[in-house]
């Protein structure tokens, strides 16, 4: 469930794109600082989104600094500066979410990939312990999600709503941590819930072929891939989650990075969605 929260680059202003990149680079740097050089590889668009959300909510982005990329010292880049622990928090989330993802993958994957994961796993479990000290609540939400997910998947009658619930709940809890008032909490809960639901559903659509082949759980398992009707249903359900997330987002009052968030919610995510759901269209591309 990684990397779906993307921007539509062509529609961003140059300065917005630079700000986005500098958050990405700042986060990457922080991961190197907090965990290790290797941990940087676990960085995803989703965590960048989370970091931006945190910085926007706490209004803690204090500027940008020039520097050089660690992976490519010839490349100059800008780093976003942050007054509080937003980057650390987002790094912790990144490491923890990969940890739980790997843990889950050990069950599902085939032999060689599993071997590879087993080799990686000790690193992440070490980093997890480190992250746990400061951000135990994030770990709580993620482990709750994993538990709920395996319960849901073991139920043969599991509906689409039920299977999406654990991820949605996790994100809803995660976002709600940042609220300063009851009202904010409700808005962020709804935003997180619908966004998490969207992420889960788009991931399920994306993995459909793989899951069917390997006999893994997928909420769309009983569906026929080429059915026009079912593709419509899938798209409608994704649309609705996005629409509700967008409505909730419109009630939030974050100002920093607003242009980037707008871009993601109205262009970036829909284009990801269109790309992924297109394959369910079968042969009749009408």
């Amino acid at each position: 469930m990684f990397g779906y929260l993307q921007i539509q680059k062509s529609e961003l202003l140059v300065r917005e794109y630079e700000a986005y990149k500098s958050v990405y680079c700042g986060l990457c740097k922080q991961m190197g600082r907090d965990y290790s050089f290797l941990a940087r590889f676990s960085l995803s668009y989703d965590c960048t989104f989370y970091a931006m959300l945190l910085m926007s909510l706490s209004k803690s982005c204090s500027g940008f600094k020039d520097g050089r990329c660690t992976f490519n010292p010839l490349k100059k880049c800008k780093f976003a500066l942050c007054e509080d622990d937003c980057f650390s928090k987002a790094s912790a989330f990144s490491v923890l979410s990969v940890y739980y993802k790997l843990k889950d993958d050990i069950k599902d994957e085939r032999f060689f990939k599993r071997l590879f994961i087993r080799m990686l796993f000790p690193f992440f479990s070490h980093w997890r312990n480190k992250a746990l000290k400061k951000y135990s609540e994030i770990d709580n939400y993620l482990s709750q999600m994993t538990d709920l997910q395996s319960t849901a998947e073991s139920d043969p009658e599991c509906s689409v709503d039920e299977s999406a619930h654990p991820t949605a709940l996790m994100l809803s809890n995660l976002f709600a941590l940042e609220s300063s008032s009851d009202e904010d909490k409700r808005i962020l809960r709804e935003f997180g819930y619908q966004l998490g639901r969207w992420i889960y559903l788009i991931d399920a659509a994306d993995d459909y072929d793989k899951d069917i082949k390997n006999g893994n759980f997928n909420p769309y398992k009983s569906w026929e891939k080429d059915s026009k009707e079912q593709q419509m249903k899938m798209v409608s359900s994704l649309n609705q989650s996005l629409a509700r997330a967008y409505d909730a987002y419109n009630l939030t009052d974050f100002k920093d990075f607003r242009g980037i968030f707008d871009n993601m919610l109205t262009l970036g995510l829909p284009s990801v969605q269109n790309k992924i759901t297109a394959k369910f269209n079968g042969g009749n591309n009408e």
Partner: peptide, 15 residues
Amino acid sequence: QRSYNYGGYNQPNMQ
């Protein structure tokens, strides 16, 4: 909501 009429993108093939 399911056809996302007011979000500004209702043309699935546009992008």
